[in-house]
Design a protein around this nucleic acid. Sequence first.
RNA 1: GCCGAUGUAGCUCAGGGGUAGAGCAACUCCAUGGUAAGGAGUAGGUCGGCAGUUCAAUUCUGCCCAUCGGCUCCA
Length: 599
Amino acid sequence: MDSTPSNPASLEEKRHTLAHLLAAAVHERFPHAKATIGPAIDNGFYYDFDFSSTDSSDGTAGHKHATPTEADLAGLEETMRELLPSWNEMLGTEVSENDARSRFAKNEYKLEIIDEVVAKGEKLTLYTAGDFTDLCRGGHAERPSKDIAKDSFVLDRIAGAYWRGNENKPMLTRIYGLAFNTKEELEAYQAQREEAKKRDHRKLGKELDLFTFSDLVGSGMPLFTPRGNIVRSSIINYSRELNNELGFGEVHTPNVNKGDLFKISGHYDQYKEGMLSVHSQYVEDEMFLKPMNCPQHTQIYASQPRSYRDLPIRYSDFAVLYRDERPGELSGLTRLRAFSQDDGHIFCREDQIEAEVESVLAAIQKALATYKIEAWMRLSLRDPQNKAKYIGEDETWNKAEEIMRTLLKEKNITFKEAEGEAAFYGPKIDIMAVDALGREWQISTVQLDFVQPSRFQLEYTAEDGAKKTPVMIHRALIGSPDRFMGILIEHYGGAFPAWLAPVQVRVLPISDKQGDYAQEVLTTLRAAGIRAEVDTASESLGKKIRDAKMQKLPYLLVVGDKEITDKTVSVESRDHGKLDASSVADFVTKISQEIKDRA
RNA sequence: GCCGAUGUAGCUCAGGGGUAGAGCAACUCCAUGGUAAGGAGUAGGUCGGCAGUUCAAUUCUGCCCAUCGGCUCCA
């Protein structure tokens, strides 16, 4: 232990210390709780407890509930604040295995940790502050009462979590806390979270009438309204345009497929649980709603003999896919049972991989720039400790991973490597988008696959007449249009740029008297292909403005007697405020350009 | 799927063993208005579903369904 406790504690050390403080508070109020693990996380800390124990010898708890609920958080927080002043020093002492075991004899979780520490040949240390001692490897604020401001943390929520993150192990109770250096930083974080809540796509999807769900249709099956479908299909059409530039040919394939297709591709073995089966009264084979497009695309490739001259062959597909996600995993548009992808597969020769991946990455960059979304790249590799999760030979994998890594390096693209994130058939370059609030989402992906082409016995005739196996590149530009729409709603806070906006212009007559002129303007706008509507309500202009602002419409055209006389419209821009009056024709020219530019 | 919470009018919510209430939205009327809510009135609900307890259940209990916060998973 460092004997000069003059170093200010880092935020991570404070958070870790607060996890201990939480455990101490829990022990006071719920003496039967078994503490397990409590680390610092990027907005605070958590600690996992097992409250299921019934062998609590002392009945001092006086608590009716064996397990705390949200209602207990305030009390626990209070206890933490009461204890904090007495935590003047947090000291570690090394102990023997036997000492450690006897101290935690009733806590099988700590015993398991002791086993691991011992197995690794590391030292066992106990840390004590106030009256509370925990098994821990260290990394705390050394003077908690001085280092930690009592108003810089708050208990946040309570949730279930599996011991060791393994769903076959016991479910523990996790208590999350938020913690920052100061009260101000904590409040700033909470305010930012409030802002995120306002932008929640599930909330905005309802308010802006973009999509809905129905118990009768089923969970995870989104119903897009006319407004929402404009956003969705605008996303798809843009991806389609980018695909065309890349030389893709769009295909159309059925939703129901024989199980054999997925047995050969390997998906049946890997994901049978995640596939929805369909039964036919005539066809005996087990059939499935397709969870992805790649196996079908192999069959289009295989429908003709292919020459090396034909390659690359590129197929794109926007089909709806179905995956039997577990109910607890569904969430708005970001996790669905029925969703599409802006999917594409490239069949090419090995010497074409680099150029193909490069052009796909360029298209992704272009799309991200259009959507004004920042992103970083992740090279997703196989987990070398768990090769059974993947199909294909070591040699193939090493080759594929090295091709991707070299390509990224040669293009001077910065990336992070992530083991265990690969697809079961090959490594991926995943594009991680960062939205307006700094949250990360995995969207696009480029995957190298040497496995499926050979399993489907795909081939082409090489220059020398020999039969060779093509390489398959799986790729998406923005991933899933449905999911991406959810991300975009939050990214823009519902204020879509004109090209994506369900309604681009609303005409607001000041009173009923200008109704005819408003209709005239509407007709002109619609003839120019602009998505426009008129607010015909018998309400004040103030009310109409308010309604339009709440709908976050890009442009409002106010028309009164003055505009009728001058043959103009008064333009109110969502992003630039009140603009000068202009002729309808001039406005049409301006907004049409903006839409065309996807500005 | 697991742990926990929630489900009341189109939306946001209040209420509570004796068949329900507000604001906004909707509809009607008045007002005809110049950049974020003009006024008045009307209508609207088997209180998520199915059972059970009870003289009586929207309220209590159980089981389902859905949603939310996490965990796990994500081809």
